Amino acid sequence: MAAAQARDAAENGPARPVLEIRHAMKRFATPEGQEVVALDDVSISVAPNEFLTLLGPSGCGKTTLLRVVSGFEDLDAGDIFIDRQDIAGRPAYRRPVNTVFQTYALFPHLSVARNVAYSLEIAKVEQAETRRRVSEMLELVGLAGFGERRINQLSGGQQQRVALARALVARPKILLLDEPLSALDKSLRGKMQQELKALQHELGISFVFVTHDQEEALTMSDRVAVLGQGKLQQIGPPHELYRTPSNVFVARFVGESNLFAATVSEVGPAHCHFRLADGQEVRLPRRDGQTFSAGDKVQLLARPEDARPSPPDNGTGLRFSGPVREVFFVGTHYKLVIGTSEADEPLKASLPAGEDLGAGPAPGQMIELWFPASRLHPLAGEVGS
C-alpha cells in the first residue's frame, strides 16, 4: 500500500488527508482538584486508505485522541477536519466515522444479523438494502451463515468480527479501533491481526488503530504515531521508528534497546565522532536533522539483534565483554542479559541459536559482543533523560 501511495503521489501529487487533527489540546480535572493534560498540541493527518496506529503506554492520550475524533469528547483547543470539513461540535452520530471498542459492545438479545444491521435500521435504510448489505458484510468478515445466531453462541474471535461488520456496514470514511484485539488469546490475536489488515486493504477505508502492543503496531501499520505524556513523540513508517527513533522515549518504547552514554568529540561535514566513557570511539554518518556540536552529551542506540558474538579484524563499532547473567532460549535464538562495566545498564543481546554457540551460552560465562557502527543510531540527551 505504501508503494501504491508513493506512485499516486508522484503522478497526482500528495493525496489530501481524509483526517486532519491540528494542535489538539485536551485537559481533564482529577478528583483531587488537579489537572491532567491528556493531549498537548497534537497534530496528525491520516491519508486515504491508510492504516495508522496510535501507540503508547497507558495514559499517553491515544484513547482520548480516538474519542475526540469519534465525537465522544470535545477538544479544549485545536481543530479536526474530515475530508476538509470542520467537524468541531458535530455530534458523534453525525460524523462519518465508526468505532470498534475493546469490549465490542454487542447486543446480547439480538441476533448476529440484527447487531450488524442496527445502524442501518436507525438510519431507516430500506429493508431489502439492509439485508443485502448485512449479508455482504457477514460474508466479508467470514461469518456467512451465522446471521441467526445469538452473540453468546459465538467465540471471542467471531464476536470481534461481528463488531467489525457492524462498524463497517454503514460505510464510514474512517474506522476507529480502540484495542479491539486485547481480549483475545495470543494465537487468535495473531490471526485476527492478519485478517484485519487484509480487510482494510480490501475495503480501502482508513483505519485508526489504538494499541499499547508495539509488535502489533509494527506488524499491522502503514505508519505509527507514538504518543507519550500527551505529546506526539514521533510519527512514521514502522521501520523508521524502529531503526531511527527521534528521541529516547521512542527508542525505549518501540522494541528493546541498549543505550550507551557518549560525548560528541568531533563534527565533520559528513560524519560525527562519538567517544564513550571507556575511551572507545566510533564514527557515524550525519543524518538529516542532526545538529550535534562537539561536547554534546548523547546516547548511542543499539538493538539487541544487532549484537555479534565476535568482531571481524577490521570491523568498526563498539566492543563489550562481561558475564552472562540470564539466558532465554526462544527457538530460533538466545536472548541474553549481560553485565558490563562499560554500560550503564545490563546489555541485551539476541544471538542466533546454533551459530558459533554450540548448545548456547550459560549463566556466568564470559562473552564478548560487538555492535557494528552501521547499526548504531545517536540520540540527543544524557542517560536517564
Rank of each mutant, 00 (worst) to 15 (best):
R90K: 14
S135H: 11
F146T: 15
L175T: 10
A359T: 06
P346W: 08
G255V: 00
T219P: 03
P312Y: 05
A198H: 13
K191M: 07
N12F: 06
D213A: 10
T103F: 08
I122N: 09
A165W: 07
R131T: 07
P269I: 07
A144M: 05
R90H: 10
A302I: 02
G360I: 12
A92Y: 13
T291V: 06
A183S: 13
S257M: 04
D185K: 13
T263A: 11
Q200A: 11
E32Q: 12
L143G: 04
A225C: 02
E202M: 10
M220H: 00
L65D: 02
Q234T: 02
L357V: 12
E136M: 14
R133G: 14
L218C: 03
A225D: 01
L336W: 10
Y93L: 13
G142K: 14
G56M: 00
A262T: 02
F72D: 02
L284P: 03
S58R: 03
A29G: 03
F253Y: 03
V330Q: 15
F329V: 15
F51S: 00
N98K: 06
P285H: 06
Q194H: 08
Q234Y: 04
E32S: 11
P245L: 09
P17W: 08
T103H: 11
A123D: 12
A343M: 03
A183Y: 05
D344N: 15
L227D: 00
V42T: 12
L357A: 06
P238L: 00
V264G: 01
G384H: 06
K335V: 05
Y118E: 10
P108H: 07
L181F: 11
D278F: 13
G157M: 14
V141R: 09
V37Q: 10
K191A: 09
G157L: 13
V125T: 10
N314Y: 06
N49P: 01
T219C: 09
L55D: 01
G230R: 00
R252S: 04
Q214K: 04
R252V: 01
H333G: 06
L106H: 04
E35L: 15
G142F: 15
D178S: 06
G384A: 10
R7S: 11
V46E: 01
R223C: 15
H201T: 06
L203K: 04
G147M: 05
S155E: 04
R243G: 01
A353D: 09
A3L: 09
L106D: 03
V97I: 11
R27M: 04
R223I: 13
R287Y: 09
Q193P: 08
V248T: 09
D83C: 03
S257L: 05
D74Q: 11
R171N: 09
F207R: 01
R223L: 14
T219I: 07
E240T: 14
G268P: 12
D356P: 01
Y242W: 04
S111F: 09
S182A: 15
E50C: 03
D185W: 10
G147P: 08
G142C: 13
G236A: 07
P285R: 11
G59H: 07
G381S: 08
L184T: 12
P312H: 12
R149L: 11
G331A: 11
Q280V: 07
L284N: 02
R287G: 08
G339Q: 13
L19N: 03
R150F: 09
L110S: 10
G289C: 02
